[in-house]
Design a binder for these strands. Structure first.
Length: 112
DNA sequence: AACTTGACGGTCA
DNA sequence: ATGACCGCCAAGT
């Protein structure tokens, strides 16, 4: 029986992303296996603001390192400011040096 | 109950 | 390299 829903598992992973690093919707979905798709992770982030927990949703971007979710942070550049405050450089909506900033749960975390 | 809409990503032309 | 297409499936209409 599943104690935790898919969304909860997503939130657990996101909370483990270190400051100054980012991961992607697809990477989280892959880490959680066949339980959900990247779209579901995106939907989980969409709902994350309703959670009492503090979810660092700004550390989740798309697979190219683009800030595709920025519109959901209230102000137009809130997501960008949060990332820059952690030392991440952004031009336009693109994270610079995305390869070095990328944090892959499948490689950094133990298997589920 | 049926149809549309995405914070996505892989494939193919 | 760029763009269309499509599978994914929870929520909102």
């Amino acid at each position: 029986m599943e104690t935790l829903g898919f969304f909860d598992q997503v939130y657990e992973v996101v909370k483990l992303v270190p400051p100054g690093r980012v991961t992607s919707y697809g990477a989280i979905a892959a880490y959680l296996g066949s339980k959900g798709s990247a779209r579901m992770v995106g939907w989980a982030m969409n709902q994350s603001h309703k959670m009492s927990y503090n979810i660092p949703a700004h550390r989740v971007v798309n697979r190219k390192g683009l800030l595709t979710g920025k519109a959901h942070f209230g102000g137009y550049d809130v997501m960008r400011q949060l990332l820059e405050s952690e030392g991440i450089i952004i031009e336009g909506d693109q994270i610079i040096n995305f390869g070095e900033r990328f944090w892959d749960p499948a490689k950094e975390l133990f298997p589920l």
